[in-house]
């Protein structure tokens, strides 16, 4: 494994649900190293997605400390948080969240454009990313012309092309059949091994949990294993 990527200490999280407040995470302590292939597992309501979102900087950290390399999340301002999300974190979602008006190529390219990467370099990265996920030749296809598995591959390519420090995936195979899900996990595993990309995903799928190197189990907002 590599150097320390994430360090969580005493992380607590509440979110409002109507008039109630849900205590989603309770005193989470954990570390994740570079190049790890980690799954957050647990039943529904265990807090795995909440923890994933905190690691991905999409939930505000109010109690506890999370550090990613030299960045201490609780001290960062809005601009810095945006910058980290833009350059260092790639997201993959259960429902893909692709733009149906854009081609596969353009979906991958969009966030590179936002990174102010020059056109030629963007083209190179996009082609490489699509090739790595096995979608060479599908660049001009729009999401509506792709299968579920292909859409998820585009989403992976989109995350990968950013050259992030970490890819964060929330239930990446939940919308896919078993065979397609296995293909997706194989792609992620390959990216982790060959490209050295750290992958952190949340899932309750046994097949997914068997594909990763390390499983962090949560129950009722606490890490149990």
């Amino acid at each position: 494994m590599g150097e320390l990527l994430y360090s969580c200490q005493g992380v607590d999280f509440h979110y409002p649900l109507g008039e109630l407040s849900v205590h989603a995470l309770k005193s989470i302590d954990l570390t994740i190293e570079e190049k790890e292939f980690v799954a957050l597992a647990g039943p529904s309501g265990s807090g795995k997605t909440t923890l994933l979102n905190l690691l991905g900087l999409v939930e505000p950290l109010k109690i506890g400390e999370i550090a990613m390399e030299n960045y201490r999340f609780q001290t960062l301002g809005e601009r810095e948080l945006n910058r980290i999300r833009r350059f260092h974190i790639g997201f993959i979602f259960q429902n893909f969240h692709l733009n149906n008006a854009l081609t596969a190529y353009e979906n991958v390219e969009y966030f590179l454009f936002r990174q102010n990467i020059p056109r030629q370099q963007r083209a190179q990265r996009v082609q490489q990313a699509l090739e790595l996920v096995g979608l060479k030749g599908k660049e001009s296809h729009r999401p509506l012309e792709l299968s579920g598995g292909q859409k998820q591959r585009v989403a992976i390519a989109r995350a990968l092309a950013k050259e992030p420090k970490v890819i964060i995936a929330d239930e990446p195979t939940a919308s896919l059949d078993q065979d397609t899900g296995r293909e997706i996990m194989e792609i992620l595993r390959r990216l982790n091994k060959e490209q050295g990309v750290t992958v952190i995903l949340a899932s309750h799928d046994t097949m997914v949990l068997e594909s990763v190197e390390r499983v962090i189990r949560l129950v009722d907002g606490r890490v149990v294993a």
Binding site: G56, V58, E78, R79, N82, R83, I84, R85, R86, F87, I89, G90, F91, F93, N95, H97, N99, F111, R114, K162
Partner: peptide
């Protein structure tokens, strides 16, 4: 959700 995806990938509120 679409806006959430954009924000999660680093788009600022202003963008």
């Amino acid at each position: 959700q679409e806006i959430g995806n954009l924000r999660a990938n680093g788009e600022s509120k202003g963008e």
